[in-house]
Amino acid sequence: MTAEHESIPPWYKQFWPWFLIGLLGSSVTFSLVYLAFSLHYYDGTVAQDYYKEGLAINEQIAKQEQAQALGLAATLRADPATGDLVVDLAGEQHPERLVLKLIFPTESARDRTLELEHVRAGRYVTMLEEPLRYRWYLHLQPAEGQQADWRLTGEARFPTEDEIALVPGI
């Protein structure tokens, strides 16, 4: 009997080493692509001090109760052509100015804070450089930040011709 000697090709000419190297290479490539996306499109929706904000929920509830006690409600109209915002505030209190915070749901870099000037009984006006688009959360209060006595909230999708109701809320 003669033993036939089978020639074994070198490793670089075989299928399985290249298959395993390809799996590892594609894994590294996809990981780098996802890393680049996560760094470029950072959503920023989670607050750094979420524990403190959670504890401050009582202050927000107090603002809601104060707005309800004063009988406050508002309607907001946005002119899609010019970008003018008009707020009609109903209730007992009419401060000299209001602060409207526009919160974009997914990108904190788009958030805007606008000051509305009192023009007559319960009517406040401001102008924007360009009309609003997309969906926004709205917070209306008499002062900026946490020192406000009350707050009205709402949600809107712009552009719209409809009035947007702002009611006491968190």
Score class of each variant (00 low, 15 high):
Lys101Met: 04
Pro168Asn: 06
Glu4Trp: 07
Tyr124Asn: 06
Pro80Phe: 02
Glu117Gly: 01
Leu140Met: 05
Ala121Arg: 08
Ala69Trp: 04
Pro142Asp: 13
Trp18Ile: 10
Glu53Tyr: 14
Thr153Ala: 11
Val33Tyr: 07
Tyr134Lys: 02
Ile8Met: 12
Tyr124Trp: 05
Pro80Trp: 01
Pro168Arg: 06
Thr126Asn: 06
Ile170Pro: 00
Gln60Cys: 00
Thr45Asp: 07
His94Thr: 10
Arg157Val: 13
Arg110Lys: 15
Leu140Pro: 01
Asp49Ala: 14
Leu138Ala: 06
Lys13Phe: 11
Leu85Phe: 06
His94Ile: 01
Leu35Ala: 09
Asp84Tyr: 00
Val28Ser: 09
Pro17Ile: 10
Ala143Tyr: 08
Glu96Ala: 15
Thr153Phe: 03
Thr113Cys: 03
Val87Gly: 00
Gln146Leu: 13
Tyr137His: 10
Thr2Tyr: 09
Thr2His: 13
Phe19Asn: 11
Thr126Val: 08
Gln48Trp: 07
Val46Phe: 14
Thr126Glu: 04
Arg97Gln: 15
Glu6Thr: 12
Gly169Gln: 08
Gln60Ser: 06
Arg110Cys: 00
Glu129Val: 02
Val167Arg: 14
Arg135Thr: 15
Leu76Lys: 01
Gly169Glu: 12
Phe19Lys: 09
Arg77Ile: 05
Pro10Val: 09
Phe15Asp: 12
Leu98Glu: 01
Arg135Gly: 03
Val87Phe: 01
Val167Glu: 14
Arg77Gly: 06
Thr106Asn: 13
Pro95Ile: 05
Thr160Pro: 11
Leu72Thr: 00
Glu107Gln: 09
His139Val: 08
Leu35Tyr: 10
Ser38Asp: 13
Pro131Ala: 03
Ala73Cys: 03
Leu35Arg: 11
His40Tyr: 13
Lys13Met: 14
Gly154Tyr: 04
Arg151Met: 15
Glu155Gln: 13
Tyr124Cys: 05
Glu130Met: 05
Tyr34Ile: 04
Ala143Met: 12
Glu144Asp: 14
Ile103Cys: 01
Leu39Asn: 11
Ala78Phe: 00
Ala62Met: 05
Thr82Met: 05
Thr45Met: 14
Thr82Lys: 09
Trp11Gly: 05
Arg77Pro: 00
Asp84Val: 06
Ala81Phe: 06
Pro142Lys: 03
Leu39Pro: 01
Pro105Asp: 02
Ile164Met: 13
Thr113Met: 08
Ile21Asn: 08
Asp43Lys: 10
Ser38Val: 01
Glu107Asp: 15
Lys63Val: 01
Gly154Cys: 08
Glu65Asp: 02
Leu114Tyr: 05
Ala156Ser: 11
Glu65Leu: 11
Gln66Gly: 00
Gln147Met: 08
Leu116Glu: 04
Arg97Ser: 14
His40Cys: 05
Tyr134Leu: 07
Gln60His: 08
Thr29Val: 14
Val87Leu: 06
Leu20Ile: 15
Leu128Met: 08
Ala156Asp: 09
Tyr124His: 04
Gln60Thr: 04
Phe158Gly: 06
Ala36Gly: 08
Thr2Val: 14
Lys52Thr: 13
Lys101Glu: 09
Val99Arg: 03
Pro17Met: 10
Thr45Ala: 10
Thr45Lys: 13
Gln60Asp: 09
Gly91Ala: 07
Gly83Cys: 01
Val125Ile: 09
Pro159Phe: 11
His40Ser: 11
Gly122Arg: 04
Arg123Glu: 09
Ala156His: 12
His5Asp: 08
Ser27Asn: 10
Arg112Cys: 00
